[in-house]
Design a protein around this nucleic acid. Structure first.
Lengths: 217, 217
DNA sequence: TATATATGTTAGGCTAATCTAACAAATAAA
DNA sequence: TTTATTTGTTAGATTAGCCTAACATATATA
């Protein structure tokens, strides 16, 4: 059996390794992601290695095993399905879904998640534009870049956000943005990367941190 | 803050004290209900007393305080709302809902439960016929007796079950029973209380244990 | 290459929730 | 009313998940 806490470690590892592309993670990196101390991560890694959920050697990099990856992905699937449920059926706003889904993702019942998937009509993306893995762990990978990479004068369409935190999402709404909205990049400061964008005719100045967290096509 | 485990103790206490009518519970009784050892209950009682959630003195009876009762009832409300959701929206059968609701009842989000209540159209009874407390902790009390109390020759209507376990509920379905079905008591053995009932023209012989767990009006 | 900074590990401790085994009190039965 | 049984309590131990402080290794920089 995999505990609640172990599930969170596997989910975090899945996200880190998947996003970095290298398939690896470090102790400190994981600790930051989970807001625990590196020493705690170290303890847990021993347990996860014992259970054959991660590959790692002292002072080496952390890698998920096949089984570890499978479980991590399962949690991601559950998280995103619950977010979709909250957003579409219970009328939560998109900045509220994440926190509750953090709890719901740990409910143990394969039947529940399959029924929920069906009830939602097998959605492929969650309210933040992230792909929802299907039962077999496959997910629709979208070709996407960050808003930071768009050239001055070009337009693009927002398809997802990188940061799911409430403050960021509220900020996004504030500049008039939501999923599938068209964005035009009007100008960019050379010095500090402040970018002026236009959404629905409304102009806003946003930081690099902001544009890094918006995915577009 | 009240922990997951503390919530379970309060819920169990609420059920025991509410059902017994005396508003009291004993250490062993509670231990049996939670399938832990009496020593464990004893430890927890000290914590709950510290938090002013129970009233109890050494070797005395356990009683919930106002606040303890409120929290226990809240868990019951959540449990029954989730059962209703699983049954009505996700097509779970009534013998499957209990186990999953045991997990879902601990999700912390007042907003979630109010939205869910609305989504379900403010149900008053769960799939087992148990009343669902409303936001203010009020519940529809039904005047009901057990099937054991019905006289030979008389008919009644099933309105709830006392035991929510899967094996019992499957047995109930097996004799052709479900909520709001009419039952006729054909005969009763004096010696061992074996009762012959008729449901939809189908006759079945059932034990005292069975008739004790069926509520009727 | 030597040193400073990053990163990772170990040892030892804490708390919540559980247990067993031994004991104490209350209640029921002889 | 004495004894047996049931019920409740205490002490001491265990496990998971976390911490701090001290130490070790790796990597980057001068």
């Amino acid at each position: 059996m995999v505990s609640y806490t172990e599930e969170n470690y596997l989910k975090a590892l899945f996200k880190i390794t998947f996003e970095s592309g290298t398939n690896e993670a470090g102790t400190n990196e994981l600790a930051t992601h989970l807001t625990v101390k590196p020493a705690t991560v170290n303890d847990m890694l021993k347990k996860l290695k014992e259970k054959a959920l991660v590959d790692y050697e002292k002072y080496g990099k952390i890698r998920l095993t096949g089984n570890g990856k499978k479980i991590g992905l399962e949690i991601v699937r559950k998280h995103r399905l619950w977010e979709t449920f909250l957003y579409e059926k219970l009328e939560f706003s998109w900045d509220e879904v994440h926190e509750v889904a953090e709890q719901l993702e740990h409910i143990q019942s394969p039947k529940l998640i399959e029924k929920l998937d069906k009830f939602l009509n097998f959605p492929e993306f969650d309210p933040h534009g992230d792909p929802i893995p299907n039962t077999d762990g496959e997910l629709k990978v979208q070709f996407k870049k960050t808003l930071s990479e768009i050239e001055i004068g070009d337009s693009c369409k927002m398809v997802a956000v990188k940061d799911n935190s409430s403050p960021f999402l509220q900020y996004v709404v504030n500049v008039g943005l939501s999923l599938h909205k068209k964005i035009k990049v009007l100008s960019k400061q050379e010095y500090d990367a402040i970018t002026v964008i236009e959404v629905n005719g409304k102009k806003s100045s946003v930081s690099q941190k902001f544009t890094d967290n918006i995915f577009v096509v």
